[in-house]
Design a protein around this nucleic acid. Structure first.
Lengths: 344, 344
DNA sequence: TTGAAAGCGATACCAA
DNA sequence: TTGGTATCGCTTTCAA
């Protein structure tokens, strides 16, 4: 490819290059060093008030904004915390969590960047993230293996924290115990006298990381009780739910753990439309404890999930960044407890 | 602050510094230039197969990952598209849109970064974004003024696209016509014979950018018809909805536009619990056309909102980046159309 | 109090 | 085919 000279046809009013500290220095009639001192309020050096003013005015006039890449290149480190964007449609819980985390890390003077490594998988993605030289990486779902962790650390990441169902060698882990979610639901249904329990498994790709452990949890809760588990594949569509509801009686189930509240709402609607009595005929339990569960009739029983607070995670990140030497910590952070309402 | 020598107490197995292309060159016994040629597959230069292999092996062995900041510093530009994270809790529509956009821009070989300028406001935020020297910026809600646009452009952003209810001087705009959303709802309710129309205004801060125009749209639809508009402040809580429903009869309304589907669900539940007949007594219309609306009984009428496709926006961004000279484009991108179901 | 200059990591020109 | 080297923008030591 041939690079033409910059701005072959200057169509903008002022196709001027973006101002650098050298430009500011020139305009203020000082050296670049002085500009840096003034703009960063370097305390180790005293600059006369007059010079200060001149520099500030020059910077203002030029619309000077420092170049973050150059700065961190020089500094040898940044305060960027990278959080790869999850590739599955994220629920309100997750959004909320991300906002919290962002805010909390901001309090520690970190900058959170959400970066989409779409299309990349495994180590490819880790490499792409490593190029940004983040000081820490918080990885939501299971898209990172031990090799990825190694790559990130090798590239200077002082903290790698995974946030998912299982720990990853070398990284600190906040274990989101989805098995426990399923287990709670299963135990609850069992305690309510249910014996033939369906478990919704979303058909949407990318949700296996959550749905598999939840299913396993139900299984575990039912072990040795004689109660049975039936997998119920279901995509998030009305027709799919209607089809499932249509053959409900033939399934002979007396309860269903519907993966989460949204699937529960979908399925419950279809079941009611099909004349299934809830909870008398079939008990329904969701998960996530969203507002909508309280608005349904019958009110939806659900598994309340306690995500780690953004503050806690931010503190962990900061602690590890300051002392990266320690042994990877593993925290169980997902408190699962059943909120019993009317549907079970 | 005193900088101790790196790694005072090497607790990790190999506290080695992060490898640079110079390290790779040394290990492979070639120059840094050669390393660069090989790793970037520079076509303008031919490197012997043997050298290629040595370089690749060295890079592999060291776990070398290029330094994005250094690269873009040298190159003088990056392909980063910055999208400031919205500061309000984002709905499923928005998440979906962001994912689309990310994917679509990825097709053009851009990299999307979502950056949280939490706590900063106005020009402060713009300056923070400008420090990253993105080639383009896509700003979701109204957090950017003409000054901000100027700062970004001055810092090398070739495309600034706002995505919100009103255009911003100097930036390309995708006008999300929330007035039209309200207008559709109002016109629909009017056509259904309703005359005293309530409009829910969410109490949550940060939603005014959307709720005000929607309200204004309803007002406009009713102009000169004799029908009346009543503002209904409502926070997203069951108790608030119950209180509102409790004084419903005294309000004397025969219809309500509930801001969006989620607020509609909340309010509709409260109204039904209070014995209000829907739609006979009061018609309810939501917006966003979420799945949940179809699952409610009565089925929720809603305003379907057509967001711009990620592809379209990506194309706009790419086009403007390639030719930044043009006059800012303004696109109406929000197709609003009523989906009539049972609640109205 | 200010300036000159080295250097962070990668790339691309020009020589060899 | 490969290597030396200037350069991007910024910070920071060292000298003046």
């Amino acid at each position: 490819m041939v690079h033409l000279p910059e701005q072959p046809v200057p169509s903008s009013p002022a196709p001027t290059a973006v101002p650098t500290s050298a430009d500011v220095a020139r305009l203020a009639g000082v050296s670049r060093a002085t500009v840096s001192y003034v703009l960063n309020n370097t305390s180790a050096v005293r600059i006369s008030e007059a010079t200060r003013r001149r520099v500030h005015e020059a910077a203002e006039e030029l619309g000077y904004v420092p170049h973050a890449a150059a700065r961190s290149l020089r500094a040898g480190h940044s305060r960027m915390v990278l959080m790869p964007a999850p590739r599955v449609p994220v629920g309100p819980l997750h959004s909320q969590f991300f906002n919290d985390l962002q805010w909390a890390l901001g309090r520690f003077d970190y900058t959170v960047v959400q970066y989409g490594g779409i299309g990349l998988n495994g180590d490819e993605a880790a490499r792409a993230w490593a190029e940004l030289r983040p000081v820490a990486v918080v990885v939501p779902d299971g898209g990172l293996g031990p090799r990825g962790v190694h790559i990130l650390k090798r590239s200077g990441a002082r903290a790698v924290v995974t946030l998912g169902p299982e720990r990853v060698e070398g990284a600190h882990a906040l274990l989101l115990d989805h098995v426990g979610v399923g287990h709670s639901a299963g135990a609850h249904l069992l305690a309510r006298g249910r014996r033939r329990i369906g478990v919704v498994v979303p058909g949407e790709p990318g949700l296996e990381h959550f749905s598999r452990p939840r299913l396993a949890g139900v299984r575990r809760a039912l072990e040795g009780t004689g109660a049975t588990v039936t997998e119920l594949p279901l995509t998030y569509e009305e027709e799919a739910a209607a089809r499932l509801a249509g053959r409900w009686r033939s399934l002979g189930l007396d309860a269903v753990f519907a993966y989460n509240d949204e699937y529960a709402m979908l399925l419950m609607r279809a079941l009611l439309d099909a004349g299934v009595d809830i909870p008398a005929g079939t008990a329904v339990v969701g998960a996530d404890d969203l507002m909508l569960g309280r608005l349904l009739r019958p009110r939806l029983s659900t598994v309340h999930i306690e995500l780690p607070s953004g503050r806690d995670l931010a503190e962990l990140v900061d602690r590890v960044v300051r002392d990266p030497g320690g042994v990877p910590e593993v925290h169980q952070v997902l408190g699962a407890r059943v909120v019993h309402r009317e549907s079970s």
